[in-house]
Design a binder for these strands. Structure first.
Length: 451
DNA sequence: GTTAGGG
DNA sequence: CCCTAAC
């Protein structure tokens, strides 16, 4: 409801789509409807161009589409016989809607863990049960729009109550339909919905940047806009990750939109998006992923399951400088000490070397020793191939080391081949000269300290 | 907790 | 130097 008492009257259907109040953007009802519909549907199109979408509001996407771990639910109801949303929006929004649709479908394809088919179908099942449709949801008598692309993407699952209001004439009063989908991994739906919002309204969206709101309940933007139409469809729409709620209510007096807070996109999404945008590849496959390399649910997980640590994007933007805050250059004495330690204890006993030789150097961890040794091996290995340059003190770090130290490193390298820096002359050996067993990867197996 | 390996 | 999986 507008509080100023001056309802806006918008005549063009496309303009009805959004009104800016309080800096927020109100999605048009039909867009909402489209969104809802397509979240419930299975991508079918083989190849959908999303040119308009990807370029459209790109920044907004990156900034605003920040949703992870979102479970998602719709809660929308409508009044039937009111002429539906079609009467409100007419055909004007179809183009935009298609773009939104395409974007959504691409999202579907991009995200790893989406189980579009199964989950959607199950969702639709629930949906049907809740609202007691006389027919199966997907079989409802939806009349597709004139645009052929709709067929490509998803004409089947269009919500009849919203976009095809005439087809649900059997429902005479508003029904509240709740579709709860908590099984979604990585909150695909939430992401999609969010994406959709900003895909759709990115160009006009001037609302405050809603990024980085992970895990918190959403801010609710109240946005009003007035429909010129007499009918009063009611669409409310809940995005919930623990009750994140958005609702759009369209009444005669106006529309109430409570816009969810947006989450940052997943890391994968960002990578995918940037990859596609940089390579100029804007056509993403939608539908059955025949050769898609990213089908995580079917990939056998090797080894210990990774912890799912929600990584925030700004964590990735740490500079290399920030990452190496405590860098301390290795001195020649330290290197010699390390070489001595390795000669004495062997490769791999980094804690021993640390305790015995670097006890006073608290800043040198066993991992540091290991890394340094790895670098020394790498350098000395390269040194072998570029002897001249090294002797001329041109390129490598090893150049700063005395020849004797370099020779010792190389000698130790042959004795204790480090994985992946193994010397060719030792590649066939299965035992080191100390008799330390080497596993199939060339790794020294741990041996007793009494050795 | 330690180590390997990748970044 | 940091991170993480594997052990």
């Amino acid at each position: 409801m507008r509080t100023d008492g001056k309802p806006l009257v918008i005549k063009k259907p496309t303009d009805v789509k959004r009104q800016r109040v309080d800096g927020s953007i109100v999605p048009g009802l039909e867009d909402e409807a489209t969104e809802v519909e397509h979240l419930l549907e299975e991508p079918q199109s083989e190849h959908i161009s999303v040119d308009g979408v990807l370029c459209f509001g790109k920044e907004s996407i990156e900034k605003h589409l920040k949703m992870e771990d979102f479970s998602f639910a719709f809660d929308y109801g409508w009044k039937v016989g009111c002429g539906g949303l079609d009467s409100i929006h007419g055909q004007g929004g179809d183009d935009l809607k298609l773009e939104v649709l395409d974007g959504l479908l691409d999202e579907v394809d991009e995200v790893d863990d989406i189980h579009a088919t199964n989950d959607f179908s199950s969702t639709c099942e629930d949906f049907l049960l809740d609202i007691e449709f006389p027919e199966k949801f997907s079989e409802l008598d939806y009349v597709p729009r004139e645009v052929s692309n709709f067929h490509n993407s998803s004409s089947e699952s269009h919500s009849p109550g919203i976009s095809g209001s005439n087809s649900v004439g059997g429902i005479s009063e508003s029904s509240i339909v709740t579709v709860q989908e908590s099984n979604y991994k990585n909150g695909v739906l939430g992401k999609m919905a969010n994406c959709d919002l900003h895909h759709t309204f990115g160009s006009k969206c001037s609302c405050p940047d809603p990024v980085m709101e992970t895990g918190r309940p959403s801010i609710q933007h109240d946005v009003d806009f007035v429909e010129s139409d007499d009918e009063k469809p009611l669409v409310s729409f809940i995005l919930s990750n623990k009750k994140v709620k958005s609702s759009v209510k369209v009444t005669k007096g106006g529309t109430h939109l409570r816009q969810k807070r947006v989450r940052k996109p997943t890391r994968r999404y960002i990578e995918e998006f940037s990859r596609n945008s940089t390579t100029g590849k804007k056509c993403l496959k939608v539908g059955p992923k025949e050769d898609s390399p990213q089908v995580p649910e079917t990939q056998p997980q090797r080894g210990r399951p990774r912890k799912i640590v929600p990584k925030l994007e700004f964590e990735r933007s740490k500079t290399a400088c920030d990452r190496r805050k405590h860098q301390r250059m290795w001195t020649l004495a330290e290197v010699i000490k390390l070489v001595d330690g390795i000669a004495q204890y062997g490769v791999g006993r980094w804690t021993d070397i640390k305790k015995l030789l670097f006890a006073s150097s608290s800043y040198r961890t066993p991992v540091d020793l290991r890394d340094k040794w790895r670098n020394l091996l790498r350098s000395s290995s390269a040194h072998k191939h570029n002897m001249r340059e090294v002797e001329d003190n041109t390129e490598l770090n090893v150049r700063l080391l005395p020849k004797t130290v370099v020779c010792r490193i190389r000698e130790l390298a042959t004795i204790h081949p480090y994985p992946k820096v193994r010397n060719s002359n030792l590649s066939s050996k299965q035992l080191t000269t100390e008799g330390a067993p080497v596993n199939s990867h060339g790794r020294n197996l741990r041996w007793k300290k009494s050795n």
